[in-house]
């Protein structure tokens, strides 16, 4: 939970950073896209049943890292993006123990896919 909340804070900071640090355009857009994605993923992964979604934060982290290196001449803002990306990447790897049990999680929903396929097949034969 703490890792998810720290990621959430980093996402909010990524949203605010272009205005505070006056990032150049490419970095600005990257942070404005990565920020909301990180906020959404972090909030979702705060839920015990979606905790594995934290891995998805590696995608915006990788984008920030690449753009941070590309725009490295804009020192302060680029370094900020690289640091945020590194922290996000680290936090995405932090696994957490959950207190509750969730009946096998989303894997146990897999038989549903077969049932939907079967129902569709029966529907197409019937119609």
């Amino acid at each position: 939970m703490i890792a998810a909340l720290l990621s959430l804070a980093l996402g909010i900071w990524a949203l605010a950073a272009p205005g505070v640090l006056e990032s150049e355009s490419l970095l600005r857009v990257s942070e404005h896209v990565a920020g909301p994605v990180v906020v959404g993923i972090s909030l979702a992964s705060a839920s015990p049943v979606l905790r594995r979604m934290r891995i998805v934060n590696l995608v915006p982290a990788a984008c920030l890292l690449v753009v941070g290196f590309i725009t490295f001449r804009a020192a302060g803002a680029a370094v900020n993006a690289i640091v945020v990306a590194a922290l996000l990447g680290t936090l995405a790897g932090v696994s957490r123990q959950t207190e509750g049990h969730y009946g096998g999680g989303w894997r146990s929903v897999a038989p549903l896919r077969r049932s939907i396929t079967r129902a569709e097949r029966q529907g197409s034969h019937g119609g």
Binding site: G103, S108, V109, A110, P111, L112, S115
Partner: peptide
């Protein structure tokens, strides 16, 4: 999730 597990 719990409802989908039941339906499954």
């Amino acid at each position: 999730l719990a409802a989908l597990q039941h339906v499954a």
